[in-house]
Design a binder for these strands. Structure first.
Lengths: 107, 107
DNA sequence: TCGATATATAACCAGCTGGCTATGGATGAG
DNA sequence: CTCATCCATAGCCAGCTGGTTATATATCGA
């Protein structure tokens, strides 16, 4: 079983793939050709990365003639943001429990 | 060259490793033995994961007799939070530029 | 001192992954 | 119609990675 967090983290873990995603965030919708020009790797490699990004929900594709335009789906990042918040939350809860303990010890 | 983002994403991409980190966030400082009991893998495997987490700055270790206590370093997550904010920022900037363009076209 | 316990390290291995080239299929240009 | 272009897919391979067992090291208890 592969969770949403798994897919997101694994997808963004590769520098090349993250670079492509950042490019789409910065410049908006781009064709595969344009992305390949920046990436410094072969077109098939770029297509494979785009496939992974699409599976993760991080990009959307739009066909137009023989070109495919890809764009970033920023909303797909929210599980990641939620996760960091949750980690911070755990930390605070432990801190509060410690505070309570100290209060009880104080009485 | 390996950036901070690279290290963070790659470190958190592994489910087992992320689980260990979450455990430390939830329960606070833990010995290697305690972590191994939860992880469902061998002690050396856990030690290796802890090594990776430590290299990424995500955990701290404290020696006490023959035990090693590990704890989460929440602050190490900030580059990750910054990155997501930056991506959102790129998106907004493009939106603003589009707005400006439409304004100019309107005149 | 001697055995048990806690952790780290070494050595090894199977499987995944990210790159490549080759090729197919669809669309545009002439 | 024919050829070029754009992209996706297939097949291949080297290298990384996450697991294992075996072992070293250090501390604790008796």
């Amino acid at each position: 079983m592969s969770t949403t967090h798994d897919v997101l983290f694994r997808t963004l873990a590769d520098p090349t793939r993250r670079e492509i995603f950042e490019q789409l965030c910065r410049e908006g919708e781009q064709t595969v050709g344009a992305l390949t020009a920046h990436a410094g790797i072969s077109q098939p490699a770029v297509s494979k990365h785009l496939g992974v990004l699409k599976t993760a929900g991080l990009v959307r594709d739009r066909q137009e003639g023989r070109q495919t335009h890809y764009s970033a789906q920023l909303g797909a990042l929210s599980p990641l943001i939620d996760w960091t918040r949750q980690m911070a939350g755990f930390w605070e809860n432990r801190f509060n429990r410690l505070e309570d303990l100290l209060k009880r010890m104080d009485q």
